[in-house]
Amino acid sequence: MEQNIYKLVFKVTHAEGSGSCFYLKSCNLFVTNYHVVEGFHAVAIHDSERNPYLAKVVLVNPALDIALLAVEHDFSMLPDFPLAGNDTLAIGGKIRVAGYPYGMPFTVTEGTVSAPKQLMDGQYYIQTDAAVNPGNSGGPIINEKDEIVGITVSKINDADNMGFGIRVETLHKLLESVNALERDKFQVQCESCEELISEPDDYCPSCGEELPEGIFEERHLSPLTEFCESAIERMGINPVLARDGYEAWCFHKGSSEIRIFVYNRAYLFMVSPVNLLPKKEVEGVLDYMLSTDFAPYKMAIDGRQIYLMYRLHLSDITEQYEEQIRENMVNLALKADEMDNMLVERFGCEFSAYSKQENEA
Score class of each variant (00 low, 15 high):
4 N>C: 04
8 L>Y: 04
10 F>Y: 10
18 S>K: 01
19 G>Q: 02
21 C>W: 02
23 Y>L: 04
23 Y>C: 02
24 L>M: 07
26 S>F: 01
33 N>C: 05
34 Y>V: 00
49 E>A: 10
51 N>M: 13
51 N>S: 13
62 P>S: 02
66 I>P: 00
83 L>D: 05
84 A>Q: 06
87 D>G: 01
89 L>A: 04
97 V>C: 09
98 A>C: 13
112 T>D: 05
115 A>D: 15
115 A>C: 14
125 Y>K: 09
126 I>K: 05
132 V>H: 03
135 G>R: 02
136 N>E: 07
149 V>Y: 05
152 T>F: 01
156 I>C: 01
157 N>V: 04
170 T>Q: 08
174 L>E: 04
175 L>K: 07
180 A>H: 08
180 A>N: 12
183 R>L: 07
186 F>Y: 15
187 Q>L: 04
193 C>I: 11
195 E>H: 09
199 E>N: 07
203 Y>I: 08
217 E>H: 06
221 L>V: 12
224 L>W: 13
228 C>D: 03
236 G>T: 06
239 P>L: 06
249 W>D: 11
255 S>Q: 13
255 S>Y: 09
257 E>H: 06
257 E>A: 01
258 I>L: 11
259 R>E: 13
261 F>I: 07
264 N>F: 01
280 K>M: 12
285 V>W: 14
287 D>V: 05
295 A>H: 08
296 P>Q: 14
297 Y>T: 06
301 I>H: 02
304 R>G: 01
318 T>F: 10
319 E>L: 10
344 V>C: 14
360 E>I: 07
361 A>R: 14
